[in-house]
Amino acid sequence: MDFGYIAQQLANGLILGSMYALVAIGFSMIYGIVRLINFAHGDIVMIGAFTTLVLMETAGLPFPLVAFFVLLTGCGMGILIERISFRPMRGAPQVTGFIASLGISIMLQNLGILTLSAQPRNFSFPSYMQRILNLGPVSFRVVDVVIILTAFFLMVALIFLVQKTKLGIAMRATAENIDVARLMGIDINKTIMATFAIGSGLAAIAGLMWGGKFGQIDPLMGYVPGLKSFVAAVIGGVGSIPGAILGAFILGLSEVLFVGLLPPIYSSYRDAFVFGVLIIILIAMPNGLLGKDIGDKA
């Protein structure tokens, strides 16, 4: 095991982590502000991927325009889901929203199988995204760089949004105490709707990237990203956006390094190991890496 090999595996872990991070940012944002574990987040990733496929293959739109429309579709789905199902449930126990999001997820998956068929489809990105770059012993592709840059750009933009803008202040106030925020004249409905729109728009963009990186999409593809972003967000700490990114990188790195650095026979224990590490992190830091104590609410 030489230096080049380890460097390559580290790079692989970072790339996978940034893929998870891209999905986890939106998840963590909704989680932080509405305190909702939104399992339908992964299925918005799926919708984003299929929207991209339709726009690129059939409509043949140029790539930046496709990305813009995908973002819009995601925002629209987020608003729709919030308006129809989560808004009427506001004030109910947290687990209610979680179950409702599971319901939405199952619904979207089965609708996907019914209308799109369960066959996986190939998904091809423009060829300049697929080019291989070499940096010393490490090789990666243009799309990987784009994913990492997008993830970091979105993180910075979101932190700016939440910390500096008026909407962000309204969001934080809503997250802190919904009733007091309302008394202060904040339009709660608008704020939460904006949160869902932004979070889901990011999920749709993540779907575009996910399809582009792996080249294959199907109606059930949302399950894995949904689950991983949930884990990443919790590890990072409830509602902390940098925490979610950190959690995603820890997840991606530990998955790759566990497979890459130990003898191959242990590969099939990967998930057990990864979750073992996560449990240990949580036991040592019961509020996640960067989270605050949320008190006794559950």
């Binding site: 595996q9 790339i15 996978l16 792996f214 998955e255 790759v256 890459g260």
Partner: peptide, 10 residues
């Protein structure tokens, strides 16, 4: 699994 980079590197 979607990502086989670890196996490929090995």
């Amino acid at each position: 699994d979607k990502d086989f980079s670890a196996q490929i590197a090995r």
